[in-house]
Simulated scan of single mutants.
Amino acid sequence: MRFDIITVLPGLLESPFAHSILQRAQKKELVEIYVHNLRDYADNKHKSVDDYPYGGGSGMVMQIEPFAACIEKLQGERIYDEVIYMTPDGETLNQDIANTLSSTENIIILCGHYKGIDQRIRDVFVTKEISVGDYVLSGGELPAAILVDAIARLIPGVLSDETSALSDSFQDGLLDAPIYTRPAEWRGHKVPDVLLSGHEAKIAAWRDEQQLKRTQERRPDLLKD
Rank of each mutant, 00 (worst) to 15 (best):
K73L: 15
E72K: 14
S103E: 08
V83F: 06
H19R: 02
V35M: 06
R24S: 11
L101H: 06
L38H: 03
K45H: 09
S20Y: 05
A69L: 15
R78P: 07
L101N: 02
Y52S: 05
H46N: 15
M86H: 03
E105R: 00
G59T: 03
I33Q: 08
L30E: 12
I71N: 11
P53C: 13
V31D: 10
V83H: 06
P66Q: 06
T100S: 10
A42W: 09
D40Q: 14
I107M: 00
Q23F: 04
D89K: 15
E65V: 12
F67Q: 13
A42Y: 08
I71D: 12
P88R: 04
R39V: 11
G59L: 07
I71T: 08
N106H: 04
I33S: 06
I33M: 00
N106L: 04
A25V: 14
H46G: 10
I79D: 07
S58K: 02
L101W: 02
Y52N: 06
L74A: 10
G76R: 08
N106F: 01
N44Y: 05
M60D: 14
N99A: 02
E105W: 08
G55I: 14
G90F: 09
I109A: 04
D89I: 11
E77Q: 06
A42Q: 10
N44I: 05
A98E: 05
V61Q: 04
L101T: 02
I79F: 08
Q26Y: 06
T100C: 06
G59D: 02
Q95R: 03
A69T: 15
Q75K: 14
F67T: 14
S103G: 01
S20R: 07
T104P: 11
H19E: 15
I84Y: 02
M62Y: 01
D40A: 03
Y34T: 12
H46F: 14
D40V: 07
G90A: 15
Y80V: 12
H46C: 15
E105F: 05
D96M: 09
I97V: 13
E91Q: 10
I109E: 02
E82K: 00
S20G: 09
A42D: 06
I33G: 10
I97C: 00
E32R: 13
D96H: 08
L110V: 07
L101S: 05
R39W: 05
S58A: 03
K73V: 12
A25E: 11
R24P: 12
M60H: 09
E32N: 12
K45I: 10
E65W: 12
M60N: 15
R78W: 13
M60E: 07
I109P: 02
L74E: 12
P66D: 00
E32I: 06
D81T: 00
G56P: 11
N37S: 08
P88Q: 05
M86R: 00
Y54C: 08
D50Q: 14
E82G: 03
H46Y: 13
D51W: 13
S103P: 07
E105V: 08
I64E: 01
I71R: 05
E32G: 13
P53L: 08
G57W: 01
